[in-house]
Amino acid sequence: MEEKKYETVLKIFILQFAAIAVILPFVWLLSTALKSPGEVFTPTLKLIPDTFMWSNFLEIMDRAPFWLYMLNTIIVCVGILLIQLLLVIPAAYAFARLDFPGKDVIFLLFVIQIMLPLESIIIPNYLITKKLGLLNTRTGLILPFVASGFGTFMLRQTFKQVPNALEDAALIDGAGHLRFIWHVLIPLSRPTIVTFSMISIATHWNDYFWPLIITDMDRVRTLTIGLGMFVQQESGSDWTLLMAATLFVCAPIIAFFLATQKTFIKSFLTSGIKG
């Protein structure tokens, strides 16, 4: 199938235009984060600062404990992911390959949860977390997210595709449920597990609403909420510092994805997300 010359040019033009339009805000963020305050208050568009103000980053560390926020964010994200995997894999296994009374109804409960994110039932969740004495704790930031209907659904789809012959072979070799999961299902479902893990990390790195309502002290705050508080504290006075802080909040997750981009894109394109 041959493309006409003008078609190719037009397509590349459209793609380039979109790519640049989407990248520009980030370039603007980078540029402002490195400017001196004086350069921001001029109505000219200057992309490259006169002098690179790396000290902006030191300055924000003095004003708010951003390293502590980052540590908390990492603990919360990793905690959520590990517990999610511990809960989701056995559940997906049961739905994909076992039989028991009420299976369809229970599976429906997991699927419906996908449509009811925590944000939509924030009031009662806040009251429950308060009753459990988990306000202002990292445990409180983790637990409400650990039962993932989305992950259960994704993994169930993948586990179903593993041929029955492999299960028979494992059984003849004397493997039980757990060995079969560990030695056969998990290795075969690696792309889906990687995709789910990455989506989970990206989602929870970005959580804002839940930490906003259940934390009110720096000790347990995560990056996003730390940024929100920093903005209030500085009350929009100095855009260079605000953009430096914004960049500091985005940088780790972007670096993480750039480092793992091959795995991520490949896993995403081959995993169960096909509708």
Binding site: A19, I23, Y208, L227, F257
Partner: peptide, 17 residues
């Protein structure tokens, strides 16, 4: 990546930007 990266940015950071 140039179209996908905004998804990775925390909404709070994107909002400030």
């Amino acid at each position: 990546y140039s179209l996908f990266y905004p998804t990775l940015i925390p909404m709070a950071a994107a909002a400030m930007l």
